[in-house]
Deep mutational scan, measured.
Amino acid sequence: WVPDSEAPNCMNCQVKFTFTKRRHHCRACGKVFCGVCCNRKCKLQYLEKEARVCVVCYETIS
């Protein structure tokens, strides 16, 4: 899990986070992404309901 303080930009597209461009943690890899790069949901083994995942993890999992 990457702390918010260590991620000033999206770890995929590099967009800078602001008050309106929020950070989202991928529940699969723990990296920090913008809403566009972390907009998929899928079922993870260790969680009961679907969770937010990044586009890279989504392609790997599904």
Rank of each mutant, 00 (worst) to 15 (best):
27 R>E: 03
9 N>C: 14
42 C>I: 12
51 A>K: 10
55 V>K: 09
49 K>R: 09
2 V>T: 08
2 V>D: 08
61 I>G: 14
57 C>D: 03
46 Y>G: 15
40 R>N: 15
37 C>W: 00
11 M>A: 14
8 P>H: 12
59 E>L: 07
8 P>S: 10
58 Y>N: 05
61 I>K: 13
62 S>Y: 11
19 F>S: 15
5 S>M: 15
2 V>Y: 08
20 T>N: 09
3 P>G: 11
31 K>L: 09
14 Q>V: 13
54 C>N: 02
37 C>N: 00
46 Y>N: 15
39 N>W: 11
3 P>D: 12
53 V>D: 03
54 C>K: 03
32 V>A: 11
58 Y>M: 04
35 G>S: 11
51 A>P: 04
40 R>W: 11
21 K>I: 02
16 K>R: 08
56 V>S: 10
50 E>K: 11
14 Q>D: 10
19 F>C: 14
3 P>M: 09
2 V>W: 02
56 V>D: 09
31 K>H: 14
34 C>E: 04
4 D>H: 03
54 C>Q: 01
17 F>E: 01
44 L>G: 05
47 L>I: 07
30 G>K: 12
61 I>A: 14
33 F>G: 03
22 R>I: 06
45 Q>D: 15
5 S>E: 07
22 R>M: 10
9 N>W: 13
34 C>A: 02
52 R>K: 10
32 V>L: 06
52 R>L: 13
52 R>Q: 03
39 N>R: 08
20 T>G: 06
8 P>D: 11
40 R>D: 15
46 Y>A: 14
45 Q>C: 05
47 L>P: 14
11 M>W: 09
32 V>R: 03
21 K>R: 06
24 H>V: 06
19 F>H: 13
55 V>H: 08
5 S>Q: 13
18 T>E: 11
57 C>Y: 00
59 E>T: 11
42 C>H: 15
45 Q>K: 06
15 V>M: 08
30 G>I: 02
5 S>T: 08
27 R>I: 00
58 Y>D: 12
9 N>V: 13
38 C>Q: 03
16 K>Y: 07
31 K>R: 13
26 C>D: 01
31 K>T: 02
57 C>T: 00
50 E>S: 11
49 K>V: 08
41 K>G: 10
24 H>G: 02
17 F>H: 02
49 K>P: 05
59 E>M: 08
60 T>E: 12
36 V>S: 11
20 T>Q: 11
19 F>K: 15
53 V>F: 02
36 V>Y: 11
37 C>E: 02
13 C>P: 00
61 I>M: 15
24 H>K: 03
28 A>K: 08
3 P>F: 15
9 N>Q: 10
24 H>W: 06
42 C>Y: 11
6 E>K: 09
41 K>Q: 15
9 N>E: 14
7 A>W: 02
14 Q>T: 12
5 S>A: 09
13 C>T: 02
41 K>F: 15
43 K>V: 11
25 H>Q: 07
41 K>M: 14
38 C>L: 05
34 C>Q: 01
35 G>M: 13
6 E>P: 04
6 E>A: 07
17 F>A: 01
8 P>R: 13
38 C>V: 06
58 Y>F: 06
16 K>E: 15
27 R>Y: 03
47 L>M: 13
22 R>D: 11
38 C>N: 02
10 C>H: 02
49 K>F: 13
5 S>F: 07
57 C>W: 00
11 M>H: 08
27 R>K: 04
10 C>F: 00
5 S>V: 06
40 R>G: 13
4 D>K: 04
3 P>Q: 08
51 A>Y: 02
14 Q>I: 08
57 C>S: 00
44 L>S: 05
51 A>C: 07
58 Y>S: 07
53 V>P: 05
18 T>P: 03
28 A>C: 08
49 K>I: 07
47 L>C: 10
34 C>F: 01
56 V>I: 10
50 E>W: 04
59 E>H: 06
32 V>I: 11
31 K>W: 15
9 N>T: 14
11 M>D: 09
50 E>H: 09
27 R>S: 03
30 G>R: 04
9 N>P: 01
52 R>P: 06
11 M>K: 08
59 E>I: 06
50 E>P: 04
1 W>H: 02
38 C>Y: 02
2 V>M: 04
52 R>C: 05
35 G>Y: 11
57 C>I: 00
2 V>L: 04
33 F>Q: 06
17 F>L: 03
34 C>D: 03
35 G>P: 07
16 K>A: 14
13 C>E: 03
50 E>M: 11
27 R>W: 07
21 K>W: 11
39 N>L: 09
43 K>A: 14
58 Y>A: 04
4 D>Y: 05
4 D>E: 03
50 E>T: 12
55 V>C: 12
14 Q>C: 13
50 E>I: 10
8 P>Q: 11
47 L>R: 07
15 V>K: 07
31 K>Y: 09
38 C>F: 02
20 T>R: 06
38 C>H: 03
6 E>D: 11
57 C>E: 03
33 F>E: 04
12 N>L: 09
37 C>I: 00
9 N>D: 14
32 V>K: 04
42 C>K: 15
50 E>D: 15
3 P>E: 15
6 E>C: 06
40 R>H: 13
17 F>M: 06
53 V>C: 14
22 R>N: 06
7 A>C: 07
60 T>A: 11
12 N>H: 10
29 C>L: 01
4 D>R: 05
14 Q>M: 13
3 P>S: 12
1 W>G: 07
36 V>P: 10
11 M>T: 06
46 Y>V: 12
36 V>M: 07
11 M>F: 10
54 C>V: 00
47 L>W: 11
13 C>G: 01
51 A>R: 08
39 N>Q: 12
2 V>F: 09
30 G>W: 05
15 V>A: 11
7 A>R: 03
57 C>L: 00
49 K>C: 07
22 R>Q: 07
16 K>P: 12
55 V>T: 10
6 E>F: 04
44 L>K: 04
11 M>C: 10
12 N>T: 12
54 C>I: 01
5 S>D: 08
60 T>N: 13
7 A>P: 01
26 C>M: 01
9 N>S: 12
50 E>N: 04
35 G>R: 11
3 P>T: 13
58 Y>C: 07
61 I>E: 15
26 C>W: 01
29 C>N: 02
21 K>Y: 03
61 I>T: 14
15 V>D: 06
25 H>S: 03
44 L>R: 04
20 T>A: 11
16 K>H: 09
40 R>C: 13
55 V>R: 12
1 W>D: 00
43 K>Y: 15
10 C>Y: 01
8 P>F: 15
39 N>K: 11
58 Y>P: 03
5 S>K: 05
11 M>Q: 10
45 Q>A: 08
10 C>D: 00
31 K>N: 11
13 C>A: 02
53 V>Q: 06
20 T>I: 09
52 R>D: 05
1 W>V: 07
28 A>F: 03
11 M>G: 12
43 K>E: 14
16 K>C: 09
15 V>Y: 09
56 V>E: 12
1 W>K: 15
26 C>S: 01
51 A>G: 10
17 F>W: 13
30 G>C: 11
47 L>D: 12
54 C>T: 01
43 K>N: 12
38 C>D: 02
5 S>L: 07
39 N>T: 14
36 V>A: 07
47 L>Q: 13
60 T>G: 11
47 L>Y: 08
57 C>K: 01
42 C>N: 15
24 H>Y: 01
56 V>Y: 10
62 S>M: 15
26 C>V: 00
3 P>I: 14
46 Y>K: 12
7 A>M: 11
45 Q>N: 11
42 C>M: 14
19 F>V: 14
24 H>N: 03
1 W>A: 02
24 H>P: 03
56 V>M: 13
31 K>C: 10
47 L>G: 07
1 W>E: 05
5 S>R: 10
4 D>I: 03
62 S>D: 12
41 K>L: 14
43 K>S: 14
35 G>V: 12
42 C>A: 12
49 K>H: 12
49 K>L: 04
51 A>D: 12
16 K>D: 11
29 C>K: 00
32 V>Q: 04
57 C>H: 02
44 L>M: 06
33 F>N: 08
15 V>N: 07
40 R>I: 04
11 M>S: 09
30 G>V: 02
47 L>V: 13
2 V>N: 04
39 N>M: 12
10 C>T: 00
60 T>Q: 13
25 H>W: 04
56 V>K: 09
25 H>Y: 02
2 V>I: 09
44 L>A: 03
22 R>T: 03
27 R>C: 02
5 S>P: 03
24 H>M: 13
